[in-house]
Amino acid sequence: MKAIRLSLTLAAATTLMLAAAQPAVAAQDPTGGKQTTYPGIPSSSLEKFGGEAGVAVWVDDLFYYILADNRINQIFLTHGKVKRQIALNKELEQMVLGGPVTYEGASMSAAHSDMGITLTQFNAVVEDAYLACDLARTPYTVCNQLIAALAPFERSIVTR
Protein backbone atom coordinates (compact mmCIF):
# COMPACT_ATOMS: atom_id res chain seq x y z
CA MET A 1 0.00 0.00 0.00
CA LYS A 2 2.84 2.27 0.98
CA ALA A 3 4.59 1.42 -2.31
CA ILE A 4 1.46 2.30 -4.28
CA ARG A 5 1.14 5.65 -2.51
CA LEU A 6 4.81 6.42 -3.14
CA SER A 7 4.48 5.47 -6.79
CA LEU A 8 1.39 7.64 -7.21
CA THR A 9 3.25 10.56 -5.66
CA LEU A 10 6.14 9.92 -8.03
CA ALA A 11 3.78 9.77 -11.01
CA ALA A 12 2.05 13.00 -9.96
CA ALA A 13 5.38 14.75 -9.45
CA THR A 14 6.60 13.60 -12.87
CA THR A 15 3.39 14.85 -14.47
CA LEU A 16 3.74 18.26 -12.87
CA MET A 17 7.38 18.52 -13.87
CA LEU A 18 6.60 17.59 -17.44
CA ALA A 19 3.65 19.98 -17.53
CA ALA A 20 5.84 22.79 -16.21
CA ALA A 21 8.41 22.01 -18.89
CA GLN A 22 5.76 22.33 -21.59
CA PRO A 23 7.11 24.88 -24.00
CA ALA A 24 4.99 27.71 -25.34
CA VAL A 25 5.14 27.32 -29.09
CA ALA A 26 4.73 30.55 -31.01
CA ALA A 27 2.35 30.61 -33.95
CA GLN A 28 4.16 29.86 -37.17
CA ASP A 29 3.74 32.23 -40.08
CA PRO A 30 5.41 32.50 -43.45
CA THR A 31 8.34 34.80 -42.93
CA GLY A 32 9.37 34.95 -46.52
CA GLY A 33 11.60 31.95 -46.70
CA LYS A 34 12.16 28.24 -46.57
CA GLN A 35 10.44 26.41 -43.72
CA THR A 36 12.73 25.23 -40.93
CA THR A 37 12.19 21.56 -40.14
CA TYR A 38 14.05 18.85 -38.22
CA PRO A 39 15.82 17.38 -40.07
CA GLY A 40 15.90 20.11 -42.73
CA ILE A 41 14.25 19.93 -46.12
CA PRO A 42 16.89 18.86 -48.67
CA SER A 43 17.86 21.48 -51.25
CA SER A 44 16.82 19.02 -53.97
CA SER A 45 13.18 18.91 -52.80
CA LEU A 46 11.79 21.61 -55.08
CA GLU A 47 13.54 20.05 -58.07
CA LYS A 48 12.15 16.60 -57.19
CA PHE A 49 8.71 18.17 -56.97
CA GLY A 50 9.14 19.23 -60.58
CA GLY A 51 10.24 22.82 -59.94
CA GLU A 52 7.87 25.75 -60.36
CA ALA A 53 5.81 23.90 -62.99
CA GLY A 54 5.59 20.76 -60.82
CA VAL A 55 4.42 22.72 -57.78
CA ALA A 56 1.83 24.52 -59.96
CA VAL A 57 0.45 21.16 -61.14
CA TRP A 58 0.37 19.86 -57.58
CA VAL A 59 -1.55 22.91 -56.31
CA ASP A 60 -4.07 22.56 -59.16
CA ASP A 61 -4.46 18.88 -58.20
CA LEU A 62 -4.83 19.82 -54.52
CA PHE A 63 -7.68 22.20 -55.26
CA TYR A 64 -9.26 19.63 -57.58
CA TYR A 65 -9.47 17.28 -54.58
CA ILE A 66 -10.44 20.01 -52.09
CA LEU A 67 -13.34 21.22 -54.25
CA ALA A 68 -14.45 17.59 -54.71
CA ASP A 69 -14.24 16.92 -50.94
CA ASN A 70 -17.67 17.36 -49.36
CA ARG A 71 -16.10 17.55 -45.89
CA ILE A 72 -14.43 20.89 -46.67
CA ASN A 73 -15.30 22.25 -50.13
CA GLN A 74 -17.99 24.62 -48.80
CA ILE A 75 -15.43 26.40 -46.65
CA PHE A 76 -13.26 27.15 -49.67
CA LEU A 77 -16.23 28.07 -51.88
CA THR A 78 -17.84 30.30 -49.23
CA HIS A 79 -14.57 32.06 -48.66
CA GLY A 80 -14.48 32.81 -52.41
CA LYS A 81 -11.62 33.86 -54.62
CA VAL A 82 -10.56 30.25 -55.28
CA LYS A 83 -8.35 31.37 -58.17
CA ARG A 84 -6.47 33.73 -55.87
CA GLN A 85 -6.12 30.98 -53.24
CA ILE A 86 -4.59 28.71 -55.90
CA ALA A 87 -2.16 31.44 -57.04
CA LEU A 88 -1.09 32.21 -53.46
CA ASN A 89 -0.61 28.50 -52.72
CA LYS A 90 1.69 28.15 -55.73
CA GLU A 91 3.86 30.92 -54.22
CA LEU A 92 3.70 29.56 -50.70
CA GLU A 93 4.55 25.95 -51.53
CA GLN A 94 7.56 26.93 -53.62
CA MET A 95 8.77 29.29 -50.92
CA VAL A 96 8.56 26.81 -48.02
CA LEU A 97 10.51 24.27 -50.12
CA GLY A 98 13.26 26.85 -50.57
CA GLY A 99 12.31 28.29 -53.97
CA PRO A 100 13.26 31.88 -54.92
CA VAL A 101 9.68 33.08 -54.58
CA THR A 102 8.08 35.56 -52.21
CA TYR A 103 4.64 34.76 -50.83
CA GLU A 104 2.57 37.93 -51.15
CA GLY A 105 -0.57 36.89 -49.31
CA ALA A 106 -1.68 37.64 -45.78
CA SER A 107 -0.08 35.73 -42.90
CA MET A 108 -1.56 32.29 -42.24
CA SER A 109 -3.15 33.40 -38.97
CA ALA A 110 -4.58 36.61 -40.43
CA ALA A 111 -5.98 34.74 -43.44
CA HIS A 112 -7.74 32.12 -41.30
CA SER A 113 -8.48 33.96 -38.06
CA ASP A 114 -12.25 34.37 -38.55
CA MET A 115 -12.89 31.04 -40.23
CA GLY A 116 -13.08 28.75 -37.19
CA ILE A 117 -11.17 25.95 -38.90
CA THR A 118 -11.08 22.67 -36.93
CA LEU A 119 -8.22 20.19 -36.83
CA THR A 120 -10.54 17.66 -38.49
CA GLN A 121 -10.94 20.04 -41.45
CA PHE A 122 -7.20 20.78 -41.53
CA ASN A 123 -6.49 17.03 -41.67
CA ALA A 124 -8.97 16.65 -44.54
CA VAL A 125 -6.77 19.06 -46.53
CA VAL A 126 -3.70 16.98 -45.56
CA GLU A 127 -5.41 13.87 -46.95
CA ASP A 128 -6.22 15.75 -50.15
CA ALA A 129 -2.58 16.90 -50.29
CA TYR A 130 -1.44 13.25 -50.33
CA LEU A 131 -4.02 12.47 -53.04
CA ALA A 132 -2.63 15.39 -55.09
CA CYS A 133 0.87 13.89 -54.76
CA ASP A 134 -0.47 10.57 -56.03
CA LEU A 135 -2.17 12.27 -58.97
CA ALA A 136 1.00 14.20 -59.84
CA ARG A 137 3.05 10.99 -59.40
CA THR A 138 5.14 12.72 -56.76
CA PRO A 139 6.90 10.01 -54.69
CA TYR A 140 5.62 9.66 -51.11
CA THR A 141 9.01 10.52 -49.58
CA VAL A 142 9.19 13.72 -51.67
CA CYS A 143 5.57 14.53 -50.78
CA ASN A 144 6.51 14.29 -47.10
CA GLN A 145 9.08 17.08 -47.58
CA LEU A 146 6.20 19.41 -48.44
CA ILE A 147 4.00 17.96 -45.68
CA ALA A 148 6.84 18.67 -43.22
CA ALA A 149 7.08 22.24 -44.52
CA LEU A 150 3.32 22.90 -44.25
CA ALA A 151 2.50 20.98 -41.04
CA PRO A 152 3.54 23.80 -38.64
CA PHE A 153 0.86 26.07 -40.17
CA GLU A 154 -1.63 23.95 -38.21
CA ARG A 155 -0.92 26.19 -35.21
CA SER A 156 -2.02 29.35 -37.06
CA ILE A 157 -4.77 27.90 -39.26
CA VAL A 158 -6.68 25.79 -36.72
CA THR A 159 -8.43 28.13 -34.31
CA ARG A 160 -11.01 25.84 -32.73
Binding site: A19, Q22, V25, Q35, T37, Y38, A151, P152, R155
Partner: peptide, 21 residues
Protein backbone atom coordinates in the same frame (compact mmCIF):
# COMPACT_ATOMS: atom_id res chain seq x y z
CA UNK B 1 -1.30 13.10 -23.57
CA UNK B 2 0.56 15.85 -21.74
CA UNK B 3 1.94 18.06 -24.49
CA UNK B 4 3.53 18.14 -27.89
CA UNK B 5 2.30 17.42 -31.41
CA UNK B 6 4.06 14.36 -32.86
CA UNK B 7 2.79 15.25 -36.32
CA UNK B 8 2.41 19.00 -36.76
CA UNK B 9 5.44 20.41 -34.96
CA UNK B 10 7.93 19.44 -37.64
CA UNK B 11 9.64 22.83 -37.16
CA UNK B 12 10.91 21.99 -33.68
CA UNK B 13 12.26 18.98 -31.83
CA UNK B 14 9.63 18.94 -29.06
CA UNK B 15 8.08 15.46 -29.08
CA UNK B 16 4.57 14.39 -28.09
CA UNK B 17 4.68 13.18 -24.50
CA UNK B 18 2.12 11.02 -22.70
CA UNK B 19 1.97 9.17 -19.42
CA UNK B 20 -0.09 6.08 -18.85
CA UNK B 21 -0.59 3.01 -16.77
Amino acid sequence: RLFGEAIYDSDNLIPQVAIGG
